[in-house]
Amino acid sequence: MRKQPFVFKACLSTHKIGVIGLGRLGHALVASLEEIQADVLVHDLVRHTHPGYTSTLDELLESASILFLTVQDDNLLQLAKDIQTYLSNMQAAKDGKIVIVCSGGFAIEKLDFLKKYHCEVAKMHPLQTFSDREFTPFPRRTPFAIQASAEVTPLLTELIQRLHGKVLSLSRNQWFQYHLAAVVAANFLPLFIRKGMELMEPITRDAELSAEWLRPLINQTVKQALNAENDLPYSGPASRGDREVIQAHTEWLKERNREFSTIYEVCSREILKNVLNS
């Protein structure tokens, strides 16, 4: 018979937490959990020097009650099947696990088969990006989107609060648009910044100097864009309706990078439309 659901404070003090996958997110999660003195085990296919490292998945599953899956999306389903195999082979009846997926784009309903083994399946996604594989905790006030049952939601909420984060509880149907919003807002920005640096480099003859020249402009642009009260955070020829300059830029780019000239043209049209409709 299944025992009572885990009580969160008891989880930290009496239960081990397993983190499976030591990529950039896994490193940050482990550092954050250790900062609040959680008892953490880690497992990765690549051997690691972390003191909580276990060389086999079974060793981690034997001890950990709460599992954070921080592997790439393509590997999540197979990892869940490996967990299923372990649980199905247990000799004695035990509590299941709380399995927490840390991906923004993976539908946890694909792992419903784990519920047969008394597992709770939930989702906790930090709305943050990580540049290095270092044991550096999440920045304070990091937003975390969660999807969980009524039993597990208080657990995740308390955890995020102890990590000094912010909680955004999502329904199953809200995840697609949430993830799309994150991709549109952040994933393409580095592409445009690097393209600007590339265009500047023949003038400065130095990549770092190009970044230094563009940094104030980029910082101010991001600041304006994040000001929700500013309906028109745009600058440049499209914001002024200067179609002649837009055409000249487009033609110049077309001779050198036809695909990017199309992107430039589409983005300019979108800004023009927003300005005209304001």
Rank of each mutant, 00 (worst) to 15 (best):
M1V: 10
F8Q: 12
F8S: 13
H15C: 11
H15I: 03
I20T: 06
G26V: 01
V30I: 07
E34M: 08
L57N: 06
E62I: 08
S63A: 13
S65H: 14
Q78F: 03
Q78T: 12
Q78M: 09
L79H: 08
A80D: 05
Q84P: 00
A93K: 10
F113V: 05
L114I: 02
H118A: 10
E120H: 12
E120Q: 12
V121K: 03
P126L: 09
Q128D: 08
F130V: 01
R133S: 13
R133E: 08
T136N: 04
A148D: 10
A150N: 14
P154Y: 02
T157F: 01
S169G: 02
H179D: 04
V183C: 12
A185K: 07
A186W: 10
A186L: 14
L189A: 10
F192R: 02
K195I: 03
L199V: 06
T204L: 15
E212P: 04
E212I: 03
W213G: 00
Q220D: 14
T221L: 01
K223P: 02
L226V: 06
N227G: 08
E229P: 00
D231E: 13
G236C: 01
G241V: 07
R243H: 10
Q247T: 11
L253H: 09
L253P: 05
K254Q: 14
N277F: 03
S278N: 15
